[in-house]
Amino acid sequence: HNLTITQGKLFFHYNPKLCLSEIHKMEEVSGTKGRQERNDIALKTNGDQASCENELLKFSYIRTSFDKILLRWEPYWPPDFRDLLGFMLFYKEAPYQNVTEFDGQDACGSNSWTVVDIDPPLRSNDPKSQNHPGWLMRGLKPWTQYAIFVKTLVTFSDERRTYGAKSDIIYVQTDATNPSVPLDPISVSNSSSQIILKWKPPSDPNGNITHYLVFWERQAEDSELFELDYCLKGLKLPSRTWSPPFESEDSQKHNQSEYEDSAGECCSCPKTDSQILKELEESSFRKTFEDYLHNVVFVPRKTSSGTGAEDPRPSRKRRSLGDVGNVTVAVPTVAAFPNTSSTSVPTSPEEHRPFEKVVNKESLVISGLRHFTGYRIELQACNQDTPEERCSVAAYVSARTMPEAKADDIVGPVTHEIFENNVVHLMWQEPKEPNGLIVLYEVSYRRYGDEELHLCVSRKHFALERGCRLRGLSPGNYSVRIRATSLAGNGSWTEPTYFYVTDYLDVPSNIA
């Protein structure tokens, strides 16, 4: 807008934040220059609390790290170098490059900038070799853009010569660093050979998330399962459950009422301010606690030095998902009996873990797994792929695949051998790939016309006998059925096997 004052003059007093240069501009645009008398524009009460600059400061050096910015700028000295009290560095987070010096300023003089007072450097006698002032900004957020400017702080001049310097606002972004852990990993099994893994992005990506790394490792069953005799009275049979499938998407929606109208769909109840505040506090606490764990609990591995020492970490090797089922080394339970199943799973520490690289999504279907087997899954978020990966501390989750139908069934015939004193040795093959492992066998036998009897055969007993022995049988026709019990439950009964026990007292003698 054009402003013209045809008559009258300007009068400025007691404006401590208004620089004289701005008042002189007002004289020019209003056409009143030359009308004012000496005392109409006070030299001592206008701009006496402001830094009124008329020179431009330029930054000469900028260096960044993930949490620091090192700045240096060209030296500046007023005509009387004693008038320079120091520099004021202003900075704040700036997602967009549209910041002005006066953003967030209120009537009390406060604003949204963080201000650092910096002492002037030592003055050199040689004007050509003056030290460049600077400042190291610490405690910054990774991968965050900051708006920065600097200006001088000078003393009051009796001659009211307006001098000083100020830089333009520059924008500097800190470097990326390792992201925080992925949030809320959930693993479920939808079949006997697959596990579905879902997660949420890290709360602090500290860069642009480029991919996720998912490692999985087959877990050995508890050692007590191999040692305890679950045929003993009072000892509860062990059981394991597989990871249940995901709930429906509708039930997972946030901010939804727990109660549904019987007449149909209901609208979600909005969260109160107290609920939102509580969630923010919980989120802040979780982030602080995660940072504490990362800094205190997890110790970084030592990389190899120039002395030739090897990095103890196993090298990563990509495998196809079809090879995942046989990740671990199978060892027989008892070496003397080769027909026992290889369900003991000690994992070799030198073995390469299978892994998958996930790009542009937060889910993965891990296939080719062994049925009813526990897996430990390790999830890392990465925001750099080359020249070397920059990934987060791992988040861990466990899951067990679903049982395989008929995996616990005894394959092959049940054979028998009759000894003296009416002892019958029953023999059968253990299931080759049971659900988890076989903890015991149930032997059901009966003599024709009598009630059915049951015998429990422990895992250890089966390994020693290759089956079991029935003792003290009365003469007669017998039928026997056997079924295995694994961590997933009972298998199917075998087809009945028949044998006849004679009275050993009636056996004919070869003595003449």
Results as ranks from 00 to 15, higher is better:
Pro270Tyr: 07
Leu225Ser: 09
Pro413Gln: 15
Thr401Ser: 05
Glu227Phe: 11
Leu426Ala: 01
Glu265Tyr: 01
Arg466Met: 10
Asn326Pro: 12
Glu247Lys: 11
Val324Arg: 11
Tyr441Leu: 00
Phe226Ser: 07
Arg400Gly: 06
Ser262Met: 13
Thr373Lys: 11
Ala263Gln: 11
Thr340Glu: 14
Cys231Asn: 03
Arg301Gln: 14
Arg481Glu: 04
Leu213Phe: 04
Pro434Leu: 01
Pro475Gly: 10
Phe499Ser: 00
Arg286Thr: 11
Val393Thr: 13
Leu225Val: 09
Met402Arg: 02
Lys271His: 06
His352Leu: 07
Ser315Asp: 08
Arg313Ile: 07
Asn206Asp: 03
Leu321Phe: 13
Glu417Thr: 12
Lys278His: 02
Lys236Gly: 14
Val423Lys: 03
Thr340Pro: 13
Leu237Arg: 14
Val443Gln: 00
Ala488Gln: 06
Leu455Thr: 10
Val345Trp: 12
Gly264Asn: 15
Ala395Tyr: 08
Glu221Thr: 05
Thr272Gln: 06
Gly368Asp: 06
Pro508Arg: 15
Ser398Arg: 12
Gly491Ala: 06
Phe246Ala: 03
Pro245Phe: 15
Pro205Ala: 08
Thr241Trp: 03
Val423Asp: 15
Ala407Arg: 11
Asn435Tyr: 00
His425Cys: 04
Cys269Trp: 08
Arg370Glu: 15
Thr497Cys: 15
Thr485Trp: 09
Ile438Pro: 02
Pro205Arg: 12
Leu440Thr: 03
Cys468Met: 12
Ser341Asn: 15
Phe246Ile: 10
Lys271Pro: 05
Ala381Tyr: 03
Ser320Val: 11
His461Thr: 09
Gly374Ala: 04
Leu321Asp: 05
Thr272Leu: 10
Tyr375Ser: 00
Pro205Phe: 14
Glu433Lys: 15
Asp385Gly: 10
Asp222Ser: 10
Asp250Glu: 12
Thr307Arg: 13
Gly476Leu: 00
Ile482Tyr: 01
Met427Ser: 12
Phe337Pro: 14
Ala336Ser: 12
Arg218Ser: 12
Arg376Asp: 15
Glu260Pro: 12
Phe246Glu: 12
Lys361Ser: 10
Phe215Asn: 10
Asn206Gly: 09
Val501Leu: 06
Ala394Leu: 08
Lys287Trp: 15
Pro387Lys: 15
His454Asn: 04
Asp261Pro: 12
Glu495Cys: 05
Trp216Ile: 10
Glu356Gly: 13
Pro349Asp: 15
Ser320Ala: 14
Pro300Arg: 12
Gly449Leu: 13
Ser344Phe: 06
Leu293Gln: 07
Leu437Trp: 02
Thr340Ile: 11
Gly308Met: 15
Tyr212Lys: 00
Ser257Cys: 05
His454Leu: 09
Ser492Glu: 11
Ile366Gly: 00
Val334Glu: 05
Tyr375Asn: 00
Phe337Arg: 13
Lys432Pro: 13
Arg390Gly: 14
Asp250Ala: 08
Ala463Arg: 11
Pro346Ile: 15
Leu237Tyr: 03
Asp409Ser: 09
Tyr478Trp: 10
Arg218Pro: 13
Arg376Ile: 13
Asn339Pro: 10
Lys233Arg: 12
Ser509Tyr: 11
Arg481Ile: 05
Glu351Val: 09
Val443Ser: 00
Ser304Cys: 05
Arg301Leu: 10
Arg400Tyr: 06
Phe285Ser: 10
Leu369Phe: 04
Asp450Pro: 01
Val329Tyr: 11
Val359Leu: 09
Gly368Arg: 09
